[in-house]
């Protein structure tokens, strides 16, 4: 019971400590269990709320930023590199009371195919996000929705930017949570990555 009850004392009552004690006991109980019933509507202000309560600002190794440029050449899925592996962590993340949304952006430039003639195979660049939470790390792909693709061929050098936003829907409770970007290409063309950023936003409550 978070509300205080004021015990009325009437004129003519015996002067005993019982009613004042009852009043004080009510204060004792209530002050230990303050909750929404005690706070005025709209009464809590930003300054009463501890930092990182509603969301966390990523810092340090939680954030990857690198201008690059770095040439990536992976016929099969491998970690993408832009100055360094595009990877963040270790983060502490508990999916039972937090939400994590990953933001990844970069510029890419695909080299022209060295094939000639019509019907030459186009090359396809693919990117996807992976996570690990066991400290080994053992990498798993974040849900299929994170994959991005672009293409080029003999005549068309693809140059553009990509922006991936993904929600981590997997169940995680770890202080060794890591996320990385992977890349692969079909038909063996290199892709140059520049101005890469990878960071999480943890939404609480």
């Amino acid at each position: 019971m978070s509300r205080v009850t004021v015990t009325p004392i009437d004129v003519g009552d015996d002067v005993t400590i019982s009613k004042p004690n009852t009043m004080l006991a009510s204060w004792d109980v209530a002050t230990a269990v303050i909750d929404g019933e005690n706070i005025r509507l709209g009464g809590i202000h930003q300054r009463n709320i501890a930092a990182d309560t509603a969301s966390e600002t990523p810092t340090g190794t939680d954030v990857f930023e690198n201008v690059g440029p770095t040439t990536n050449s992976n016929a099969a899925w491998a970690v993408a590199v832009c100055g360094a592996n595009i990877e963040i962590g270790d983060l502490t993340y508990n999916s039972s009371n937090e939400e994590m949304i990953i933001y990844c952006s970069f510029e890419y430039e695909g080299e022209a195919s060295d094939n000639t003639g019509a019907g030459d195979p186009q090359y396809i660049f693919e990117f996807r996000l992976q996570y690990a939470d066991d400290g080994v790390p053992t990498w798993n792909t974040i849900a299929r929705s994170t994959r991005r693709e672009s293409n080029g061929n003999e005549l068309i050098i693809m140059h553009g930017s990509m922006d991936i936003v993904a929600r981590v829907t997997e169940s995680v409770n770890s202080s060794n949570f890591r996320v990385r970007l992977q890349q692969q290409e079909t038909n063996g063309a290199n892709v140059i990555l520049t101005n890469c950023a990878l960071f999480p936003r943890v939404v609480k409550l």
Partner: peptide
């Protein structure tokens, strides 16, 4: 004040 009137 304690019973529903407290603020920042």
């Amino acid at each position: 004040e304690f019973n529903g009137g407290m603020d920042r």
